[in-house]
Design a protein around this nucleic acid. Structure first.
Lengths: 207, 207, 207, 207
DNA sequence: CATGAATGAGCCTTCATTCAT
DNA sequence: CATGAATGAAGGCTCATTCAT
């Protein structure tokens, strides 16, 4: 293989990958708008600038398209609170920053979060999604744990719950807030900020 | 109206109601097996040993059938831990009983719980379900709160979180356990029992 | 057979006939509202005060119900202009009275006329209706002819077209007026009155 | 855009249009055989040698398919007597030619005419069709008027009725003839020819 | 590569009809 | 007699998927 053909091949691989990424983006957009149960390939194709025929060129199957898209979703998902962790100089500041970050993403990314919960739920029925969902969830858990650990450190204390419990609690909190937020309760985000902050204190000794 | 005709009328009303209940049962069964996205009226009908035409005789609409079924589901849902509350003679006993009850229902009713989370999620997309879901959720919250309050009482302490926070935390815990349980992790239920007990302690002063 | 049983039998025959008539009435009402293509037995039953099951007791079949109803329709249909004929003392008066009667029935019975044309049209596709439709049409033709003849008599003239031609012309006129009337043209009835009067003159010598 | 892509685009637009036309043809065939009330999309598809899915590819809706088909129908409809007008050298000849043309189309296009009356009638119930029907009717009226005017010209006379009246009269005549023709009366066409000719004379002065 | 025409299974719903009560 | 429960065919429509171009 000459250098040239190699370059061409690489470029076309890149193009292939880029197309898939592009289509995944459209897929996520459609999913977050319509939900899993109502998202059709036509709808997805329409959100991209391709014909729906092309979806079957880049993905064997609707399921493959969706799982690929979910996997991509992860990247956006799992570093959301890291900045709050990085900038906080005291436990109090982290408490506030974390709460504010949660409220912020609730307000601005509600449909994406809704999508995540929808997909995670689908994985209860559809094996195909399960592995990816579990992995994303693990990363989300780690993200939360970074907050808890740093909080404990700043507070000179230790966590009193395990990683999974901490994650479950915050995730439950967020999900409730999402539900109420989408139902039109204007105070949902604010309440979330307060509750999340308070809960953080509950999960480390003497918090 | 004579007594007889009254009885007949009542009986037929009852029969109508009974049939609706029966069909709702089949609906829940289908939903819990297949999930919202894949449950068709034909599937439901097949589970009920009626023709699918019957569904439209008893319900005006797929949406009406589903919302009715969800509403019925509530009854089963919201008293699950009351016995644990009633029989516990000490905080420790309640901690154990509550954890055991959670683990028990996780093991034996996993598909029903999966259904609940599916429907709650659907309500994020479909307004039609929202009101019912919110109401059921409120009752679930109250159910959890009965546990927390009793626990605090037995422990001679007070809750340190609000009702919604307590519910969110336990609900998040349960949901995680369900995810792992359905993914085949055999220890999920056991872990849930421990974690739930421990969390209970975290949510009251000095717990 | 005793006199009594005879009387009972007769009475029950009467009742049978009365029921059929009653149901036919509801049928005509439904048909005129919804049109042939959209009228279901359920709709008909709802307009009566019976359950839809009863329709199959009194009529073997939807077609029989409809043909029976059409046949009954005839009675209302075919004497509509006789009074105008009876009271007119001059050709001019008849011209006016006939035009006014046409305009009047267009305004107040539009849906019934629509029904008639719908059924007559169905008879082009469905043999079952044909004989009845033709007979009703013949009676309508006779009704029109009574007008034309009387008009000629009062004018001291003779018709210059045959019965069928006269009927066809007035029927065409009426149908056009109905179309425009139902399309919302407010002047349709008035125009019909004038046109019908004028046409009457054209159809007898020197008119 | 290069010439080639232009041609391709045009060709594909043309192809799209051609397919729509083709499907409209099948639709008209189905409608004329079965009537509005019994024509289903599946039936139409079967007549077209396509699957019924195709109908929804080319038309958004059953209503759109039908209105499109009706609109196409118009083209065939409204020039039917122009040749008779063009070739007639005398009033008498036109009278005969017009009558013959009517009889001819009655004999050979009966089912299409039946369709027209069916659709016009549907428009009394279904707003969606109304505008198209009224427009077609207007063109039919103009077509008839061309005959009447030319006849008057050839006879050195003037029409004594308005356009709408003339149209209504001939349309009524034709409809009656159609009814009897389809009911099996063999003489219907012949009678129509005579009656139409005679009526033509009645509608101009001294005719 | 990409398009979009075409397919056919499947969905929700309506409806004439049957029949036990 | 009359009801209304139940059936199942059929209707309009959506959609994942295939494939010729």
């Amino acid at each position: 293989m000459t250098e040239t053909t190699e370059r061409i091949a690489r470029r076309s691989v890149d193009k292939f990958a880029r197309r898939r990424a592009e289509l995944a983006e459209s897929t996520l957009q459609a999913l977050s708008e319509l939900g899993y149960a109502r998202t059709s390939l036509r709808e997805i194709a329409q959100k991209s600038n391709f014909s729906h025929g092309v979806l079957h060129y880049y993905f064997t199957d609707k399921v493959e398209l969706l799982t690929y898209s979910v996997r991509r979703f992860e990247e956006v998902c799992v570093t959301r609170y890291d900045e709050a962790v990085a900038v906080a100089l005291s436990a109090e500041e982290l408490e506030q920053g974390f709460g504010a970050a949660m409220a912020g993403t609730l307000r601005s990314d509600a449909v994406m979060h809704r999508l995540w919960y929808d997909l995670r739920n689908q994985s209860l029925f559809e094996e195909a999604f399960r592995a990816d969902v579990l992995e994303i969830d693990a990363q989300r858990q780690a993200m939360i744990w970074r907050v808890v650990e740093r909080y404990a450190e700043l507070a000179g204390a230790s966590p009193v719950v395990t990683q999974p419990v901490a994650y479950a609690a915050f995730d439950g909190l967020f999900q409730q807030a999402l539900l109420h937020h989408l139902a039109g309760e204007e105070s949902a985000a604010e309440t979330l900020a307060e509750d999340a902050g308070a809960l953080l204190g509950r999960l480390v000794t003497g918090g």
